[in-house]
Design a binder for these strands. Structure first.
Lengths: 238, 238
DNA sequence: CAATTTACTGCACTCGATGCCAGAATGAAA
DNA sequence: TTTCATTCTGGCATCGAGTGCAGTAAATTG
């Protein structure tokens, strides 16, 4: 059970996954753009957050790179950030989450792109383009991304945790595929498409993160083209 | 006594993954076939194990089904089995491992089948048949398997842990694919094949475990055929 | 200043996991 | 029988992740 929640009625009130910080919007500690407020000068109401999710993430990543993931305790991260251990868990549900930047945001973007695609564009083309599009990063972010992906692929604890994230990704794709195929997201066809697509994306990431082999988006492109040709090298590719 | 192999510098110190019990061979507690020993009756040397991996697994599975995975502590399992908590961890590296029966054995069988396949049989056909073959279970085992897979797919902790197991599966397939494709197992092509195949297998399991939809082997068959046709329904050529 | 709102954090606790080590149960050699 | 080597057992202590609770700190508004 579990996987695909086909319905739309959102009965669950729970605050789902922590997306930003203690409440929801980053107060100002990270992004210096608070001019977008209402007409009047009205900062957020209560005590301002002492750090930000992104700040913590960067800090943690740094420690992981230096002394290893398992050798870095949450206490280490917290005290390095000048906050209490308990506060760390207000920003992240779990230690591994610090490695997954704003993954949830990317999920939403992916879903949007899939939904926007013209109906007559072949399913796998839509998927390929959408995944490519959601993985275009600026040169500045690329290094950090590579670091994240490398960790995620090598540290057992992170490999394990990644499954939960990837399953969410899968759900998005399965929902899209189900729409195209005219079946339920949980059906074999939609699930196969979704999980195979996930496989292609993971292969691209894996190969990109380990060997410095070229452009990430290009790897995604190649992996998905392989998928579309039944995993046989096509005679006349690009 | 198998291959004792005294000398030869044994660089691999780690006892790899616990495959059977405290040492390596099941003493006798579970499988009543010890006639394979030498001519003489020579039971194992030290104190006999008080239970077996399989016994513990069944017991744990039972508790999980009754009170839920998270609600069942290792202490619960241990005391239900009449052993100490510490002893549980002699049989299993971690709590989730109790749900994964003899997965490692299946991995070996898969690798064997892949290696035995004739060179001229198409790669995906070999994969499809091999996965199907390693998933034929007797009626007696099917219920337990369904229970396992259902847990693995629904309990977050188990979903997470599954990634580690599946990665081992992927490695086997990637090695095979690399041989067929003439590339390294870590290359994009082999990785894509391996992870897409894993996706197909997972989709089959998922769909089989959730909906009582028919035969497991048949689901595997269909998922892999979808893969081979570029994820396009192929009953009638377009 | 008081009230309100929001964030921080220490404390206590549960549970998974691990190292250490004494002890128990067995077969074999002396 | 005694002794020894071998192998499994399991209590104890310890660490780290994660959580509920309760109290505190900092900001805005009136």
């Amino acid at each position: 059970m579990g996987h695909v929640e086909a319905d739309a009625d959102e009965t669950k009130t729970g605050d789902q996954t922590k997306t930003d910080g203690p409440t929801r919007r980053t107060p100002s500690a990270d992004t210096p753009d608070q001019d977008v407020a209402d007409t009047e000068s009205s900062g957020p109401r209560g005590r301002p957050a002492s750090t930000s999710r992104h700040e913590l993430s960067r800090l943690a990543l740094d420690l992981f790179a230096r002394q290893g993931y398992d050798e870095t305790t949450v206490d280490d991260i917290a005290s390095a950030a000048g906050i209490g251990r308990r506060t760390f868990f207000r920003y992240f549900d779990a230690k591994p989450d610090a490695v997954w930047g704003e993954f949830d945001d990317e999920l939403v973007r992916l879903a949007d792109r899939l939904a926007e695609a013209p109906e007559d564009e072949p399913m796998l083309d839509v998927l390929r383009r959408a995944v490519m599009a959601t993985n275009r990063f600026g040169a500045g972010e690329l290094d950090e991304l590579r670091q994240r992906m490398s960790l995620i692929g090598s540290v057992p604890d992170l490999v394990a945790h990644s499954a939960v994230r990837y399953e969410a990704w899968c759900d998005v794709v399965a929902t899209f595929a189900a729409g195209r195929l005219g079946c339920a997201p949980g059906d074999l066809e939609a699930q196969t498409v979704a999980r195979a697509a996930l496989g292609a994306a993971m292969a691209a990431f894996s190969s990109w993160a380990s060997t410095g082999g070229g452009d990430l988006v290009d790897q995604v492109d190649r992996a998905f083209r392989l998928l579309a040709t039944g995993l046989v090298e096509s005679p006349s590719p690009r």
